[in-house]
């Protein structure tokens, strides 16, 4: 599998091009899975960002308050084209869905009795979750490349606590994040961390 982190990045796009790409992601992201879409376009298709940079954006997006997708979008835009890139990306990503979701809400009343449409919607939404699971796999592969136990344990512990046990997210992150960071903190006299 080609690893985008090892390949050369393309030159940064114009603000207009960046906005265009995110606009269409917003419009076509039926059923969710936006982070997966953004990863595909920005890292794989256009090579505006390395895989590693994108993945640290994911971590940042989830820990900073706010919707993960919009935070990720702000981070991606900022890394590619600075503060204006972030602004452009956010507005481009959100403008389509803001209008479309209202139209879907209006249409919903007319189509809610058709089981075929329900099946389509449920199927698309389930598949869209797969786009985000795929990003989890990409993240796990990166953790494997770190060749250390602590990050893998931190990942599994976070997943089990929040996903399986359904413990509240904020205290879990407040406890696990410092532990996870402390475990890889550079010690005096060698053993430097390199991600």
């Amino acid at each position: 599998m080609a690893d985008p982190a090892q390949e050369e990045l393309a030159p940064p796009p114009s603000l207009f091009k960046l906005g265009g790409v995110l606009f269409w992601i917003g419009v076509f992201s039926f059923g969710g899975g936006l982070s997966g879409w953004i990863h595909r376009q920005v890292v794989h298709r256009y090579r505006w960002m390395t895989n590693d940079d994108f993945l640290s954006g994911i971590a940042l997006a989830q820990i900073v308050p706010g919707a993960n997708v919009t935070n990720l979008c702000v981070y991606v835009g900022y890394r590619i084209r600075g503060a204006w890139g972030a602004t452009m990306s956010l507005f481009a990503l959100m403008s389509g869905p803001t209008i479309l979701c209202v139209f879907v809400a209006i249409l919903y009343h007319y189509v809610q009795d058709y089981p075929v449409l329900h099946a389509c919607v449920d199927g698309v939404a389930a598949a869209a979750v797969g786009l985000n699971i795929r990003l989890g796999i990409v993240g796990t592969q990166r953790i494997q490349r770190m060749r250390r136990m602590a990050p893998m344990i931190a990942m599994v512990a976070t997943f089990v606590s929040v996903g399986v046990m359904e413990w509240p997210l904020v205290p879990v992150v407040l406890i696990l994040a410092p532990l996870s960071v402390a475990a890889v903190w550079p010690r005096k006299g060698g053993g430097a961390a390199h991600a």
């Binding site: 994911i58 940042l60 989830q62 989890g136 993240g139 931190a154 960071v181």
Partner: peptide
């Protein structure tokens, strides 16, 4: 390196 696994 510490925060990325939390995100994943």
């Amino acid at each position: 390196m510490g925060l990325a696994p939390i995100g994943t």
